[in-house]
Amino acid sequence: MSVVTLTINDELVSAQEGETLLAVLHERGIDMPTLCHLEGLSERGGCRLCMVELEGSSRLQAACVTQVQEDMIVHTHSERLVKYRKMILELLFAERNHICAVCVMNGNCELQWEAAKIGMDHVRYEYLNPDLAMDASHERYVLDHNRCILCTRCVRVCDEIEGAHVWDVMGRGANSRVIIDLNQAWGTSQSCTSCGKCVQVCPTGALFDKGATVAEMEKQHNFLRWILDGREKNVWSYGK
């Protein structure tokens, strides 16, 4: 693979051709907020947090779905971008009932942390306060729509890694919901293998282990690397 040279925030950077811009930013240690992106899953480009400015292009681009190109000039933290990222996070907090204080993921939540990092300390939009259900019918896991940000990591991991495609999204727009099979109680699903991958990749408290209470839930994504290394490279590294 050939190497391309690009400029990121006024610094010359070399990268492998075919890499996504987001991967390069991460390698360089540039902090890029993300929510729908998760290494090991296909990219969705839906949360719009990793938007960057490309010189010569009037449109902003999501770094997770943009491939690096020779002579690309990238700005990742302009005033405008930071302002938009804050607004997007505000929109997410206003959309459903994200009450951090009483959430199982308090302290470990990606949404909570992205907001803190960027300095989103209040929400200017009207809280929509939708009346949403919880599904605790599965013997080991719980689904709480109040905390879901529709990143679809659960849908993708179940489809791409587990191969069961239990999850999908129903409806559209603000009425979208993640669903199990025919929008049925999780405990009644015949396709679910109870592997728990969806729970582990969920960035918020929308999916958690039954029995976890406030601030007790922690998630780990290492298994994705482990599975993919095994599949792609026939390497099973038990370290870490």
Partner: peptide, 21 residues
């Protein structure tokens, strides 16, 4: 637009609702 938003990206899914509000 709010009704027709597909719901995939956050600005359109939630932004249209807030603008409508």
């Amino acid at each position: 637009c709010m009704d027709e938003s597909c719901g995939k990206c956050v600005p359109c899914r939630v932004g249209t609702v807030q603008m409508h509000h």
